[in-house]
Computed example of a mutant assay.
Amino acid sequence: MLRWFLQKNVSISEHCDRLLPERFRADGNRTFATEIAPRLLTQNALVYDLGGGARPFVSLSDKQRLNLTVVGLDLEGGELAKAPQGAYDEQIEADLTIFSGRGDADVVICQATLEHVRDGTGALRAIASCAKPGGLIAIFSPSRNAIFARLNRVLPEKVKRWLLFKIFPEKSLGHDGFPAFYDKCLPSEVERIAAQNGLELVERRLFWKSSYFYAFVPAFFAWRVWQGVSAVFLGADAAETYAYVFRRMH
């Protein structure tokens, strides 16, 4: 019965969403994973996957097809060990906030990791340090101002994990079950810190959709109204999620 109720609400919410322009309906995580980051991968590239852990960004088939060398970094070595055999050519167990890279990567990918670190400034410095001059960096993250991010910061960990996996059992397979802090997780902050670390902006994409409120229509409408009002005052920092591509200049 609960599953039917949730699915019905999702259906109604998605139907209402179709009245909005396409840019408000694009899923940021999916767009990053299927469009933004993959086009940066070129033949024989050295790729750093920061925070991929048990679920590497680059599939084995793409790794082999493009002859990529993939370095995986994660806070927990146990997560790296869960990755498919051969996914990483090198595994680094390290805290991204204090890590210092070798400056040798052609491409650095950091998907849905920045929100999980306690020191966003340190993490962005480390991300920049991994790329070689001219190397590209692709980042995807939720925004600190998103309502789901606000709730994530105030709800007890056990409560929010139970709610999340009860309503969205598929999210137990990704990063969503890990504690999130959202330090420096605003587009304006990311751009400022990136510039301080010698990164040139190549592309910015803002996304205005997240799935958390679709399962209850009243919450969905309240969220969309709040989003519209906050966008007037906060501009880009009101986005739900965002994706960046930077180039390391020096």
Rank of each mutant, 00 (worst) to 15 (best):
R118P: 08
R118C: 13
R118D: 11
R118A: 14
D119L: 09
G120C: 07
T121H: 13
T121S: 15
G122E: 01
A123D: 01
A123T: 00
L124M: 09
R125H: 05
A126T: 00
I127P: 05
I127A: 07
I127K: 06
I127N: 04
I127Q: 04
A128D: 10
A128R: 06
S129D: 05
C130L: 06
C130P: 03
A131Y: 02
A131I: 05
A131R: 02
K132N: 02
K132H: 00
K132G: 06
P133K: 09
G134D: 01
G134C: 04
G134P: 00
G134S: 01
G135L: 04
G135W: 01
G135Y: 03
G135E: 01
L136G: 00
I137G: 05
I137F: 03
I139V: 05
I139P: 05
I139K: 03
I139G: 04
F140N: 14
F140P: 05
F140R: 07
S141W: 07
S141K: 08
S141F: 11
S141Q: 10
P142S: 10
P142Y: 11
P142R: 09
S143M: 04
S143Y: 07
S143H: 06
R144I: 03
R144W: 05
R144F: 09
R144S: 10
N145S: 14
N145F: 14
A146F: 12
A146P: 09
I147M: 14
I147R: 14
I147H: 10
I147D: 08
F148P: 00
F148H: 15
F148G: 00
F148D: 13
A149D: 06
A149H: 07
A149L: 09
R150H: 07
L151R: 08
L151K: 06
L151Y: 11
N152Y: 14
N152M: 06
R153F: 00
R153C: 12
R153I: 06
R153P: 00
V154G: 07
V154R: 13
V154C: 11
L155H: 09
L155P: 06
P156N: 10
P156H: 10
P156Y: 08
K158Q: 14
K158P: 05
K158L: 10
V159D: 02
V159Y: 09
V159G: 00
K160C: 09
K160H: 15
K160R: 15
K160W: 14
K160S: 11
K160P: 10
K160F: 11
R161E: 13
W162P: 00
L164W: 08
F165A: 03
K166Y: 13
K166I: 00
I167E: 05
I167H: 02
I167P: 04
F168W: 12
P169T: 02
E170Y: 13
E170A: 15
K171S: 12
K171V: 13
K171A: 13
K171R: 15
S172F: 04
S172Q: 13
L173Y: 13
L173C: 06
G174R: 12
G174D: 12
G174F: 11
G174K: 12
H175C: 11
H175P: 13
H175A: 15
D176H: 15
D176Y: 14
D176V: 07
G177S: 04
G177F: 01
G177P: 02
F178R: 11
F178Y: 14
P179S: 01
P179Y: 00
F181V: 10
F181L: 01
